[in-house]
């Protein structure tokens, strides 16, 4: 008996077998980078937001002068008030050396020698609501001219930046999906053109549009999934390398000695990658499958409409 041939359209050798997976792999690679970028920016932004919004900086001008009640120096009055102020924890007076270091870019390495009236600077952690205006108001009663700043404004800017990055990533994903769908459609149209006579014949023998479309869609799906899986795998080393670069920004700097060696570096990179990325990466071939199937189905059914 002759060997059974299950594919009358001969699609095992159709649809530009190597070209479609290669192009889909490239799309998948870009999609992986876009997803990783969006997730990483979200994670980093969340961390930065917490750090920045919680930072409270207080400047006390003329720190050695008497306070408003003339009971102590302005600096001592402010420090005492901060100890009991709700939402304020861990107030620390910046040392002269630390202050010099901060001002060095503008005033040189020895700001004190210039005789400028420098304020005392206190850093603290702020967990209260709002931008800390209430702190400044309270402290001004003790030491007029005292400034209190929280990182709320900076946190708002980080939020806006993160939103922009996520929008860009979403736009990239939409474009990648559209281009991927167009690639499948083009490859399918090429396959249809190559097999026009065959399709007309089996159409004449009573094949349903669904039969023909399903065969093309199945083949397109296999090729798209193969390409997308390859693209996602190729993106992994790149993502790990990017995670290594971003690791210092994503987690506290570890003790010297612990980061030496490739293994520790790799472990830190893996740990610093957003957990959602490990869910998103396997979704790329699934998304490619859906796009490939739908695009091929629509293309074939549209093409078949030309036949009676």
């Amino acid at each position: 008996m002759a060997k059974r041939h299950t594919d009358p359209l001969g699609l095992h050798s159709a649809l530009e077998d190597w070209m479609l997976p290669v192009l889909v792999a490239a799309m998948s690679f870009l999609a992986a980078l876009a997803i990783a970028g969006a997730l990483a920016s979200t994670t980093l932004a969340a961390q930065w937001q917490n750090d920045t919004a919680a930072a409270l900086t207080i400047q006390v001008p003329q720190p050695g002068a008497p306070d408003a009640a003339n009971n102590a120096t302005r600096l001592a009055a402010v420090q005492t008030a901060l100890q009991t102020m709700p939402g304020v924890t861990n107030p620390q007076l910046l040392s002269a050396d630390a202050l010099n270091h901060l001002l060095a870019p503008w005033l040189g390495t020895d700001a004190a020698s210039l005789g400028l009236p420098l304020p005392a600077v206190i850093t603290a952690t702020w967990s209260g609501p709002g931008a800390g205006d209430s702190i400044a108001a309270a402290l001004n009663k003790l030491a007029p001219g005292t400034l209190a700043q929280t990182g709320t404004q900076w946190a708002a800017r980080v939020t806006a930046l993160t939103g922009s990055l996520q929008t860009c990533a979403a736009a990239v994903l939409v474009i990648v999906a559209l281009v991927g769908g167009a690639l499948v459609a083009l490859a399918t149209r090429a396959g249809l053109a190559q097999r026009r006579d065959t399709i007309e014949t089996i159409h004449g023998l009573g094949a349903l549009d669904a039969d023909i479309a399903s065969r093309f869609a199945s083949r397109a799906t296999i090729l798209a999934v193969t390409g997308a899986a390859a693209g996602a795998l190729l993106a992994l080393p790149v993502l790990l390398w990017l995670a290594m670069l971003a690791a210092p920004f994503a987690s506290p700097i570890p003790q010297p000695g612990l980061t030496s060696g490739l293994t520790n570096g790799l472990a830190r990179s893996l740990a610093s990658m957003p957990p959602a990325l490990w869910t998103a990466m396997p979704c790329l071939p699934l998304a490619a499958a859906v796009i490939g199937w739908c695009s091929a189905q629509l293309t074939v059914r549209g093409w078949l409409r030309k036949l009676v």
Binding site: M1, A2, K3, R4, H5, P8, G10, D197, T198, E200, T201, I202, G204, L205, G206, A207, D211
Partner: peptide, 20 residues
Amino acid sequence: FRLLAHLSAYDNVALPMRLA
């Protein structure tokens, strides 16, 4: 004739029955 070039004589003849 419109025989499918990549199918054997057997498979060409079997085609309408398999489609059904």
